[in-house]
Design a protein around this nucleic acid. Sequence first.
RNA 1: CGGGGUGUAGCGCAGCUUGGUAGCGCGUUUGGUUCGGGACCAAAAGGCCGCCGGUUCGAAUCCGGCCACCCCGACCA
Length: 567
Amino acid sequence: MRQSTLFGRTLREAPTDAQTPGHRLMLRAAIARPLAAGLYSWLPLGFRVARKVEQIIREEMDRIGAQEVRLPVITPAEYWKETGRWDSLEPVTFRTRDHGGHEYMIAYTHEELVMHHARNEILSYRQLPVMVYHFQEKGRDEQRPRAGLLRVREFVMKDAYSIDKDWEGLDRSYWSQHGAYARAFARMGLDAISVESDTGNMGGDVAHEFQVLTEVGEDRIAICSKCDYKANMEKATRHAEAGAVTEHGPAPSEIATPGTTSIEALRTSLRQPPEAFLKTLLMRDAAGSVVAVVLPGDRELNEPKLRKLLATSDVKFATDADFAAASGVPGFIGPVGLNARTLVDISVDGRGYVAGANKRDAHLRNVVLGRDFKGERVDVHDVREGDACPKCRGALTIRRGVEIGNIFKFGPYYADKMNGTYLAEDGTRKPLMFGSYGIGIGRAVQTIIETHFDDKGILWPIAVAPYQVHVIALPSTDEAVRAAADSLAADLEGMGVEILYDDREETAGVKFADADLIGIPFRATVSKRTLKEDQVELKARGATEAEFMPRATAAERIAAAVRRALA
RNA sequence: CGGGGUGUAGCGCAGCUUGGUAGCGCGUUUGGUUCGGGACCAAAAGGCCGCCGGUUCGAAUCCGGCCACCCCGACCA
């Protein structure tokens, strides 16, 4: 590819609103361009990377026997209505109607559609197990797209689906996908770890996410410093000495706390640490049911855990009317005498706490769990740095990560809702056991950049680099140089090496700066200077030293270097 | 969705407080000189100052409304 005709120009400066290194470099190196909030177009260089990422995933999917298919982007409402997701996904989906008034959704994901085909194609246990996958657009009306390609509203996902006879088969499919993911990410240069995750609005129960740890990530991951425990914060738990302490102190007594409505204010006025207090949160779920959540003053509520526990799509703070119905007073609410379903986090132990008195300007001291109030024991708090690992009691650390892939073990969840059954060996109808497995291509591409760059630009892993060798003619206006560079470029291409050939009439500084920015793994320079010795200079991106080789054998040697790097 | 911010040439920005015919750097075009790390000289092109309305003799500037984009949070594969 001649750079003089390349569509898309490099930018000397990134727009100021691009914040993360990967976002800035992605724009500067002409990988992709924004079209609107959360909508990006690939430019030629970026699209080549995206296709290589796809190809790696395709090879790993094929290796485990998954079969490539392709489903539509525009999907009829009827299938989504079967599972109830037509309604539940409404806030985050793009919809339209055809001229006949029929409703459609830009596919948010493809479980319903694959299950629909599966129930028609699969009649017998003899056809199982089977896995299919495709690379297809997803439309998600994210309320807040961010950081370039990391969170967008339309993107290509590799989504795979496994269909098995039983849990045992599903387990095998799940772990074969897990293995394929690990290989695919390693091949594209991503250092991904698999962590336990919540299933969110995907339904089902067991799930893992593949996370690349980087400060630019939006997810928080709890990682044990001793064992292999790793979990997303929305699911992470810890070892807590529940109820270990039991105080048989005096009965609760009221204390005047005028205007003291927050833990922070109490801490200051009573001169006690946050963990001496009980925090009682009155929450209401999507159906309007109200629940009181009791936590120690130093612990935060983890909403995803609470949603999961209540099997609801949404939790909000309660209304004034809810407070009145529960006999609670905002700012002075406490578990003693509260008229509401009460959930007590496992972080609450047996000590005597200071808690709201459910009376204006008053708190109670010496409030003891079990003696003065009761509730269901639950785990709905955020873990934090230093907490004890639930598996080994080692210290947890909290890191940020980008979720580049996920795998879900649904079991009969979709089959049950969509009547997806097969005829089993014993003559009975059984549900198709389902799993789904996604990787966001664009997010993977930018995550590679986020983790492979220096102060000059991108350092592409060669397996996904837009080209393998950047041939530079210096200067292109010199006949002899141009002829030598043309022939090197042609020779390399003839050997199947992917080259970007900088034949532009630019100065050395501009060409080298662009080469560093674009980040192709090898740079082969032909210049007046190298021509004097009848040589070609070869330099690896990121290396400090260049290598000089005779021009006659240069193409051969460079091609060999590329082969070695790819191996 | 809550909070904050920004919209002026392709990109980065100044001008707005105090209203008076729109500027700087980079980039682009042309000519010339250069040529191994974002060259130099000269000339030039390029602007519904986000949109609509209001105030005013006069609005990039003041007022109102709207739109777009970004950041933090919430939420979300």
